[in-house]
Amino acid sequence: MNAVIEPIIFCICSIAIFFSWLQFHRKFPFALFNPLLLSVISVVLILFLLEIDYSRYMTGGEWISAFIEPGVVALGYPLYKQMHLISRLWRTLIGACCLASLCALTINVLFAKALGIDEWAIRSLATLNITTAIAMETSAEIGGSAALAAVAVMIAGFTGSAFGMLLMSVLKIKNMRAVGLAFGSASHALGAATIARTSMEASAYASTALILCAIVTAIVAPIYIPFLLSL
C-alpha cells in the first residue's frame, strides 16, 4: 500500500511546495525569491529532516520529471514569438549567440579545469549559461549530471540578475538591444525576466538570445567540450 501512496504524497507535496513559493514570488518579485530555488531548498530540508532517501523521493518525483522533455518542446513558442526579430536581424543575433555560446563554454571548462574540478562535474556545469531545460539535457548527453547542471544554471541566473545592470553601467552600455542580448545570452530566463522590468525592447532581445544560445550550445557542446577537456 505504501508503495502506491508514498509516490503520490511526494508528487503532491512537491507540486504544493512549488505553487506556494510561486505565489510568494508573485507578491515579492525579487530574483533571490526564485520559486524553483526556494522549492529545492524546502524539499531538500524536508527529505533531510525526515531522513528520506533521494531514490525513495524520486518514486514520486519521476512522475513530475517526465514532463521535462515536453517542457523543452514548449520553448518553441517563445522561439516562434521572436521569429520576426530573428528574420530581421538574423546575422547579428546568430553571430552574437555563437560568440556568447563559445565564449561561455570555453571559460567554464578551462576555468573549472584550472581550479581542479572533477571532469564529470565540469561536464555538468559547462552549460550553465543556457536555459535549464536544455542545459540539463545537453549536460546529461555529454556525460554530466542533470541535477548539478540545474544548480549551476541558477548561479548564472542570479549573477546576471544581481550584477548585470551594475556591469552595464560600469561599461557605459546604453543601447538596450545590446543589453537585452547580453542578459539573455549570459543569464537565460532569469536575466530576461530581470531586464523586462527595465525595458520591454531589451526583454524581447533577451528572450531571443536565450533561445538561440541554447540551440547553439546544444549543437556545439557535444563536440567542443570533449575538445576543451582534452587540452
Partner: peptide, 8 residues
C-alpha cells in the same frame, strides 16, 4: 516545477 525533482 518539472525541474524540481531533478534539482533536488
Amino acid at each position: 516545477l518539472v525541474f524540481l525533482p531533478v534539482c533536488v
